[in-house]
Design a binder for these strands. Structure first.
Length: 496
RNA sequence: GGGCCAGUAACUCAGUGGUAGAGUAUCGCCCUUUUAAGGCGAGAGUCGAAGGUUCGAAUCCUUCCUGGCUCACCA
């Protein structure tokens, strides 16, 4: 740590020297005539006209020689080299400039020219400080070999990259790209839904009673009301209340919170888009998901065929739609429709599938997860789930034990979950009560009966299709990111 | 929670029982078209933490902390 202080002290010394030179290293105002990218777009015009441009940016490389220096400044649009000559900027200005470090923000006035080696550069007439950096940012160097960028001493420590994302963004340009894509994707989703007359709404994050998914919640407390509140695990039950209230198409970009394990697919807080469409069923929602994700793929990847994690993905419509039982038939070569529970349990035992609850629905779910899910590389709608694991979905008319539900998988990632919503209040009550029973017998992820929601449904809820899309995972897919931590600016980390 | 791997200077890493190293960065000097600029010199580390083994530990052992990968868990 002493060494770090030494580096910081060196920069504080420079601050003192600047003060002695009468320079304010933290002025309020900057003068900018152009973005750096604009210079490159019309390079020849700037070189010929010799007009004075005013650029701002952060010093990203620095080569100080005796009486002349080269450095690159970077703004949001790009990087440009600056050439500073003592004879041109003047003795005092050069003296001031000499106090600069990597990471400082500066304002440069000057003309655009090409250097001997042909790099478009800014010939500085005047240099002023905009912000002095007193903590050294890691130095990353790059060199072009045969047109390829070779990076030296890349800022690569994953822990540091996640904990100090500002450095990661600064030092690893791809990271910025990923997050810009994230923003674009969410924006496209909104536009897509707005165009189809969905309206965006907001529902409570702090909920007196949580529900809509099987997960453990974060608990917090309202002091004045002296009551526990839960951070929502899903928006579902509130959005359905809005459908009951007469909105026919609603969606919410929702931060949800689940108090569970973390891994490359899970962060305790994550982003979903939930939508509900009255008078639609899960087939309509499948079409909508297909449309939405192919549009995004086209826009973000420029093609419907791209690679994720070494897998070749083809998003061309129509996507495969297959029931759980047919997929199990396909990949496991067993016909679960003709098997008894006992036979299935035997199968699980033989294949080392551990079960805490030995019920029909759960067993199917487990076999599917272990043997089918990893194979779902190309976009696939997995349809027709057991009722038991889907307490909010409507049963199929011809088989009451199976519900009209689908999950959509791409590249082995579960991207979304949807169903024809259960709107029979009597059936819904029975299902929630059975969940509550499970909860009593120790299932921490089962929810309690939400009386207020049931009462709402008793007034009448139209037939409705609902969907939850895992936004973070969709961003992972389209940015070829291997971990959810790479698509969340500030992923959850342990205290250190 | 299990298994495996990693943690040494601000950054990237070498060092596997015998005086803590390199490159970059920093500081000083030289250098007026450089671009991983260059040359000479200097400073900089509780080797993730704590115990233990040993004459001696960055190195071996134990526990712990942090992270990664992976399995389990997870709608």
């Amino acid at each position: 740590m002493q060494n770090e202080n030494q580096l910081i002290n060196a920069r504080k010394e420079k601050l003192k020297r600047l003060a002695e030179l009468g320079v304010n290293p933290f002025p309020s105002k900057a003068e900018r005539s152009h973005l750096i990218a604009e210079i490159f777009e019309n390079a020849d015009k700037f070189v010929k006209s010799e007009i004075c441009v005013k650029l701002v940016g952060r010093i990203r490389s620095l080569r100080k020689m005796g009486k002349t220096s080269f450095f690159h400044i970077e703004d949001k649009s790009g990087k440009i080299q600056v050439y500073a000559r003592k004879d041109d900027v003047g003795e005092k200005n050069y003296q001031i400039f000499k106090q600069s470090d990597l990471g400082d923000f500066v304002n440069i006035f000057g003309k655009i020219f090409y250097t001997k080696s042909g790099e478009l550069s800014l010939y500085a007439d005047e240099i002023t400080f905009l912000t002095k950096s007193i903590r050294p940012i890691p130095v990353v160097k790059e060199k072009e070999i045969d047109g390829k960028k070779v990076i030296y001493d890349q800022f690569a420590d994953k822990e540091l990259r996640y904990r100090k994302r500002y450095l990661d963004l600064l030092l690893n340009p791809d990271v910025k790209e990923t997050f810009i894509k994230r923003t674009k994707i969410i924006k496209m989703m909104r536009e897509f839904l707005d165009k189809r007359n969905f309206i965006e709404v907001e529902t409570p994050i702090l909920q007196p009673q949580y529900g809509g998914a099987a997960a453990q919640p974060f608990i917090t407390k309202h002091n004045k009301l002296d009551m526990n509140l839960y951070l929502r695990i899903a928006d579902e039950l509130y959005l359905k209340r809005l459908i009951i209230g007469g909105f026919e198409r609603v969606y919410e970009v929702c931060k949800d919170f689940r108090n569970e394990g973390m891994d490359r697919m899970h962060n305790p807080e994550f982003t979903m888009i939930e939508l509900y469409q009255a008078y639609a069923d899960y087939n309509d929602i499948m079409n909508l998901v297909e449309e939405l994700l192919t549009e995004i793929a086209n826009e973000i990847c420029g093609t419907l065929q791209f690679e994720y994690d070494g897998m070749k993905i083809n998003m061309k419509k129509p996507w495969k739609r297959a029931s759980i039982s047919s997929l199990i038939q396909e990949y496991v070569k067993i016909n679960i429709e003709k098997m008894t529970l006992a036979e299935m349990l035997k199968f699980c035992k033989k294949n080392e599938i551990e079960l805490d609850t030995k019920t029909y629905g759960k067993v199917i779910d487990e076999i599917f997860k272990k043997f089918v899910e990893p194979n779902l590389i190309q976009p696939t709608f997995v349809i027709d789930f057991p009722k038991e694991v889907s307490p909010l979905a409507k049963s199929k008319p011809d088989n009451l034990e199976i519900v009209e539900r689908f999950e959509v998988f791409i590249a082995g990632l579960e991207i979304g979950n949807a169903f024809t919503e259960l709107n029979d209040p009597i059936d819904q009550r029975a299902r929630l009560e059975s969940q509550a029973e499970k909860r009593k017998s120790g299932d921490l992820e089962a929810s309690e009966v939400d009386e207020d929601f049931l009462e709402a449904m008793e007034y009448g809820m139209p037939p409705t299709g609902g969907l939850g899309l895992g936004v973070d995972r969709i961003v992972m897919l389209f940015t070829n990111s291997h971990s959810i931590k790479d698509v969340i600016f500030f992923p959850q980390m342990r205290n250190i």
